[in-house]
Structures are given as structure tokens and as C-alpha cells.
């Protein structure tokens, strides 16, 4: 793993600039090719479960690209949040669905033009953002690249996130909270017929409350 703040690696003396670049370039092209190929396979795979697995591969290689750029904190968050949590739920749902593969492929020709159109627009937008806007637009004005200090990734992000962007951060948290409560409200149903286990009651049970000692007289049985 390349990147800026790697004390361990510096001790080992990553130095020789050109060859280091070569090593990084190999890693970059490997990860980039895997990302793009996996992204393509997400769309083209016939089995939806395979699609999700390729999506996970794409996420994972994208995280590798982040690491190459020295953004290891973002990379780890990408893996923890998207691969570790979101994609697991994806996979869960897709596996449990009873998918009719033939029906899925039926509409391909019908949706092809509009899908291609959207993809084209997105591609053009991305190219425009990556070239013109980045150089001349709003981004060029305030792109203060982090000074190469000993500030770690996490610290740098924290400093910006909790100061300049604290309202956005709080708003994002609120949105997620609302979504969570919404999901709970939609799915939580109390059925009066279902008998629930109350563990506190069970633990609090004592022989006196839970048991009755009766003397049974012969031939009479127990009276309630």
C-alpha cells in the first residue's frame, strides 16, 4: 500500500522515486481494470447474485484506489459501510428473492435505448466535471490540497467535518435517523396474540411464585 503517512514503510526505506512510481502504477492499473471490469459485469451478469458479488468486488477495488491516493481512512470507511453492511443486505435480499431470470431479460431491448441514453449523459457529465470544471470552475477556487504535515487522514477529515460542514453533517445524521425510524414504523407490528418472552419475569421467578405444593388425597385428584 502506497500513500503519504506510512511510518512503517518509511522505516523500510521506500525511496527510489521512479521504481516506486512503477510499483504504484502497476497497482493502479490492476485495481482500475478490476474496478471497471467488475462494474461492467455487475450489469451484464445473468445471475443477480453474481451481479451483487461483482458489485462488492468493484467497491473493494475502489477502496484499493483510495488507498493508492493516500486516502486510507475513506478506503476503510468504504469497505466497512458499503461492503460490510450495505452490500450484505443487498446480497441478503437478492438471495431470498425468487427471481425469474427469463422474465428479467425480457425487457432488455425495450429499456436499452433509454438506459444507453442515461449512461451516455452520465459519462459526458463525468468527463466534463473531471476536466473543465475541476480546472476552471468552483472547485479550482477553493481546492486547498492538504499541506503535507503529519496530520493523519482521520484527523484531517474530522477537522473539516466538525467545523465547516457541521450543519451538513448533522443534517445527514437527521436524514438517516428519519429513515431508520420510518423503517421501524413500517415494519413493527405488535400482534396481541403472539406470546412474548419476558426474560426479566423469568429471572425474577422464585419457587414461591412458580410452584404450589399440594397434598393429594387418594382418589380425589387436584382441585383447582
Amino acid at each position: 500500500m502506497g500513500g503519504r503517512d506510512k511510518p512503517g514503510h518509511d522505516e523500510l526505506g521506500i525511496g527510489a522515486g521512479f521504481q516506486r512510481l512503477a510499483l504504484q502504477a502497476i497497482a493502479f492499473y490492476l485495481l482500475a481494470v478490476v474496478t471497471v471490469a467488475a462494474g461492467f459485469l455487475v450489469v451484464s451478469a445473468r445471475n443477480p447474485v453474481h451481479s451483487v458479488l461483482f458489485l462488492i468486488l468493484a467497491f473493494f477495488s475502489a477502496a484499493g484506489l483510495f488507498v493508492l491516493m493516500g486516502a486510507e481512512f475513506l478506503a476503510m470507511l468504504l469497505v466497512v459501510v458499503y461492503v460490510g453492511a450495505v452490500a450484505v443486505l443487498f446480497l441478503f435480499v437478492v438471495m431470498m428473492l425468487d427471481v425469474d431470470f427469463a422474465a428479467l431479460r425480457q425487457g432488455f431491448a425495450r429499456y436499452m435505448p433509454i438506459g444507453g441514453l442515461i449512461a451516455g449523459v452520465l459519462a459526458v457529465e463525468m468527463v466534463v466535471v473531471a476536466t473543465t470544471v475541476a480546472n476552471t470552475g468552483a472547485a479550482a477556487a477553493n481546492d486547498a490540497p492538504l499541506p503535507a504535515t503529519d496530520v493523519t487522514n482521520a484527523e484531517a477529515i474530522g477537522r473539516v467535518l466538525y467545523t465547516d460542514y457541521v450543519y451538513f453533517f448533522q443534517a445527514a445524521g437527521l436524514v438517516l435517523l428519519v429513515a431508520m425510524i420510518g423503517a421501524i414504523v413500517l415494519t413493527l407490528r405488535h400482534k396481541p396474540t403472539v406470546r412474548r418472552q419476558v426474560i426479566a419475569d423469568q429471572v425474577a421467578r422464585s419457587p414461591r411464585t412458580g410452584m404450589r405444593v399440594v397434598q393429594i388425597k387418594p382418589g380425589q385428584g387436584i382441585e383447582e
Binding site: 500500500m1 503517512d5 512503517g8 514503510h9 476503510m76 470507511l77 487522514n153
Partner: peptide, 8 residues
């Protein structure tokens, strides 16, 4: 590998 985000 002594990385900064080891825990993560």
C-alpha cells in the same frame, strides 16, 4: 504493515 487506520 504499520498503517494509520489499523483499527478500521
Amino acid at each position: 504493515s504499520d498503517i494509520n487506520v489499523g483499527v478500521l
